[in-house]
Design a protein around this nucleic acid. Sequence first.
DNA 1: CCGGATCACTAATGCGTATTAGTAATGCGC
DNA 2: GCGCATTACTAATACGCATTAGTGATCCGG
Lengths: 366, 366
Amino acid sequence: MEEPRKRARPGRAPAPAGRTSRPRQAEVARLAGVSQATVSLVLGARKQGATISEETRRKVLDAVRALGYVPDPAASRLAAARNNLLGVFSFTSTFPTDVQHSYYPFLVGVEQEAAARGYDLVLFTGSSTGGAGAAGPNALARVRLADGCLFLGRHAPAEELRRLVADGFPVVHLGRRDELEGLAWVGADYISASQEVVAHLAALGHRRIVLVREDDEAPASTDREHGFLKGLEEAGLPGGPAAVFRSADPERELTAERLRGWLDEGVTAFVAEETDTGDAWRALHGAAHFVGIDCPRDASLALLGSPPPDLAEEPVPTGFDIPRPQLGAAAVRMLAALVSGEAAAEPLVACTFRPGSTAGPAPVRY
Amino acid sequence: MEEPRKRARPGRAPAPAGRTSRPRQAEVARLAGVSQATVSLVLGARKQGATISEETRRKVLDAVRALGYVPDPAASRLAAARNNLLGVFSFTSTFPTDVQHSYYPFLVGVEQEAAARGYDLVLFTGSSTGGAGAAGPNALARVRLADGCLFLGRHAPAEELRRLVADGFPVVHLGRRDELEGLAWVGADYISASQEVVAHLAALGHRRIVLVREDDEAPASTDREHGFLKGLEEAGLPGGPAAVFRSADPERELTAERLRGWLDEGVTAFVAEETDTGDAWRALHGAAHFVGIDCPRDASLALLGSPPPDLAEEPVPTGFDIPRPQLGAAAVRMLAALVSGEAAAEPLVACTFRPGSTAGPAPVRY
DNA sequence: CCGGATCACTAATGCGTATTAGTAATGCGC
DNA sequence: GCGCATTACTAATACGCATTAGTGATCCGG
């Protein structure tokens, strides 16, 4: 009878005998007198299924301790088909030298929430993807090594994001982003927060309020205007285009004369939006100062967001704070939900009202 | 004839058909019309062995791009290879709410250097209690997923670090750490920097200089003292215990009287070490102010490091800056060297002398 | 035109753990 | 004492990639 030709065994070269490598589940199993599968079951502590006798469990755990067994994360993650890695992508450096413009406040929340859920974070930057893979149309390909990815900043290229989303790769954008169909995002609820600020002013007796905003169409701007107008309506105050001033260089600047004009018309409160540059607030603040307004007494000011760093020393503006850490945490929650296929989490995060000291009772007119 | 009983096939449940999962090498191979092994060979670009025709290589790479294939890091690691990931582990939160104590400045350099070398960073958060890594005795096990790991802060548990090192896992500690045999580290060269500051003072004519330090034995402290004394010796100035003052509560505080005493003895320059709290500098600065010293004229002050944030507004102290980003970069270089088995890189990073305005010519004594 | 060498690839592993089908052993009801 | 459940395990995968022995094919020298 023809003995089947003994095929040689390809594959990995045998490990060098010298080094005592760290123990595997197989060694633990041998020592405990059980099978490798049993060791895995004892250690896994899975919710359902297998039942293990108390004695076996003890034997296994003793062996684990005796050998100092530590599971190999690579193997665990491979077998579980889950890396427990969440990507964090920012097109610019995640840690820019200029701390002011960094994503630091978001990362605080991202890190916490990720840690709480047992995820580790992989940091990708525009430059890092250039290292491993070409920075071509597939610059974002490398993020696929994670189970899902969080995108910071508005510079994430739409085409590539679309591709990831289309492939079913879990993606969450930090900051509202509606133009991209199917892209999950989390953002701050500027509408409610702005509305609340107006309500506050109205409660203080202000009957005419003007919003100063910049002339762009970012969602963050339109949301604030929306909330502002909603707040006016709710309080039964005059809204409409007259209540909103769009500053634009050089035609329409927020001049001292313009401010005086408003005051003469009976406007007693002014609201500025927050932008990257803080220009709206700076202009409003500057004009008010120039005109010589005694801020909480003659007229009230409010800021829909936080002041720019250079104005941080001034009296705290009435307005709201964007809870950046919570935003980061919410983004992680949503990403985790997508990764595990659960129902999507809440995309909007509430801002917190900041009383500040630039708003007071409306001046009494005789 | 008895057909051998068709044994059912245990193992993993089939993947849910709905979701298009990330592409595998197998899919790439199918698309390119080659075997999975060929894909691996093309992508691996290993030094020796297999030769691949130019055409096949092109077909494979095209397929890789078309599918957006990215290797699974866990699988790569398990197959005893690299995954181009470097871990960053901090026992405390990497992004603490308190920005002052953050590792941010280091991370700036870490990220840059890692990106430049084609590595991505994985943030392993030590504070993670739930989820994947229970905070038990094996909190550090997760880092083995990466090719190597950088440890920040002095809280990394020695036992676990020792274990990693013993297993030959590449580890670099940011900050000197001699007590752990075989642990690689990078640190700032406090000795040379301190010596340089003393040399500067000596060149300005100061003949008696006193070091004010706190009463602990951290390497950062002893190094500075070492460099200080070395500087004195080099300049032919009196050293010995009398030149060093260890402040300790409540017995030995840096009082105004003590300072006056030194001045009377002919001391014309004072040097403080930098610590987490900045207490040494604060005490020295405060006492000098209290005594009414006109700083660069009556006596010179120097700080071996950077001032605490609350004293940042004061005149810039003469001393040196710790180049934190460069330290981070150096740590990555060393880690990369360990990972690739090259010769170890330089562990010491030079500090940069900061002229400042608190040191001037020694006052002339008549 | 045949033996050996080189080339270009593929088949068949192994890495260490998680999962699941299967299987003895025991308990239980009637 | 026979079926049926339950309990407590184990055998046999699969996960995705790297590695290596092997296999045709082609080339080359004599």
